[in-house]
Amino acid sequence: MTALSDLTVSVQPGIVGLVGANGAGKSTLIKILLGLLAPTSGRVRVLDLDPTVDAAAVRARVGYMPEHESLSPDLSAAEFVTHLGRVSGLPRTAARERASEALRHVGLYEERYRQIGGYSTGMKQRVKLAQALVHDPDLLLLDEPTNGLDPAGRDAMLALIHRIGNEFGISVVVCSHLLGEVERICDSLVAIDGGRLLRSDNISAMTTVTDVLAVEVSEGIDQLAARLDLLGLPSRRDGRLLLVPLEDDATYDRILSAVAELDLPLHRLDQRRHRVAELFATREVTHV
């Protein structure tokens, strides 16, 4: 079984969203980045290191927050995070100090001596984030960090990730199947589906092309499409609609005059603000 194929992508520092449906290959990609799985072919570089050769060096500089429950319930958060700091190579005292710091940054300073087993889901997610931060990584890999959180918890977690990426000087890769979440905090997005790259771009580059005009005419839709093409307005069929990228205000007039010249009955002409999610979805459709 192939979980990932023909995936070529390189990302810059900052917050990168890795999005895809469940089973798209996000977790497999993370395992390859951590050197836990070797790719059958191809090349990986993480922080200029090759995880298939230098796994220990990569893992010393990467923090990983797994998707699933992964905490010892019988230990206190302070004890657990300190222990994991030492396993990352921090000397005893440094591990203890940094564990307290990491727990303070995620907002668990007061509760850090309580057993993790008694924590709420939101607190557990924070401990998972703290253990990924304890050894001061250069890169954080967060797998579904908002899993199981209520809306307020989601907002708090996203705000925290945003802060880590922008104020702490740590590059972050956030995996999620919820585009709406990651597009709020990411600088760039990588979308994969079925192990293949759908799209990888800056989030600003994506949002500039997300405004489209939807034109609905009751007949002659092909004629209109051809005419718009001649006018330099590439359009795309979406059911009974024609979608035309909105370049500037003149686009409205050019479409209207095209419809008038062809004498077509116009039902609707309105602006759609495409969410990034729809952008990915439509691209997927056009590829099929």
């Binding site: 893992r59 990467v62 994991l84 990352s88």
Partner: peptide
Amino acid sequence: PLYFSRPL
């Protein structure tokens, strides 16, 4: 996973 994502 927390252990094996570290240099252990």
